[in-house]
């Protein structure tokens, strides 16, 4: 009887230890990736550039915050920045007022900016409130999986900007926040590219 009791205590202790070890092991194995998978990076060429550079900008037709359809073809013949951003993205919110400023400063040159919201799931109201606070008046569109696949190759890094010349060709791509001067230089080059 005594032996059975001791055995029961030892067995239950062992089971408890196993369960706790299992929980700890599960915990140790649990990691959250900030960057989704290696396939994202593989979609970019080994020189560090995007496969889109030098190629025609992928066409899109997306909804703006009023539910109106906006297409890339609406900007045909104009130098354009296609800027992917997110409401959670601090550097995007630093950069967007600069884009707004340049969209006005170089409007006479035909220059335009279009923002594509990566986290459309937060809803139009949140997006509209955010852009309003930032003073952005250029078109803000809601992204789709296809637009993200075509432009971002499944990367999740924001901001991402695609500089499209008058002929519709992507002449440069930038990821992340640079300086305002660098951004303006890129805008000027986009305006100058593609001939008169």
């Amino acid at each position: 009887m005594l032996f059975a009791g001791i055995a029961l205590v030892v067995w239950s202790g062992w089971q408890n230890l196993r369960q706790r070890r299992s929980a700890m092991q599960e915990q140790q194995n649990r990691r959250v990736d900030l960057i989704p998978d290696s396939q994202s990076a593989a979609a970019w060429d080994s020189s560090g550039g995007s496969p889109l550079k030098g190629k025609p900008a992928p066409g899109f037709t997306l909804l703006d915050l009023n539910g109106k359809k906006v297409s890339l073809s609406d900007f045909k013949g104009r130098p354009l920045v296609v800027n992917f951003w997110g409401t959670y993205c601090a550097p995007c919110k630093i950069e967007m007022p600069w884009l707004q400023e340049f969209s006005l400063k170089y409007a006479a040159d035909g220059f335009r900016v279009v923002g594509i919201t990566y986290d459309s799931e937060v809803g139009r109201d949140t997006i509209a409130q955010t852009t309003q606070r930032l003073g952005v008046t250029y078109p803000i569109l809601l992204s789709t999986p296809k637009a993200e696949k075509d432009y971002l190759s499944n990367t999740e890094a924001l901001p991402m900007s695609f500089y499209v010349d008058k002929t519709g060709k992507v002449i440069e791509i930038t990821a992340g926040l640079g300086s305002k001067d660098e951004l303006e230089a890129m805008v000027k080059e986009t305006i100058a590219a593609g001939g008169r």
């Binding site: 900030l34 560090g48 550039g49 992340g176």
Partner: peptide, 12 residues
């Protein structure tokens, strides 16, 4: 920043 997303797998 770099002009491509960071390639190393990053975790918290």
């Amino acid at each position: 920043s770099m002009d491509i997303p960071a390639k190393p797998r990053a975790t918290v």
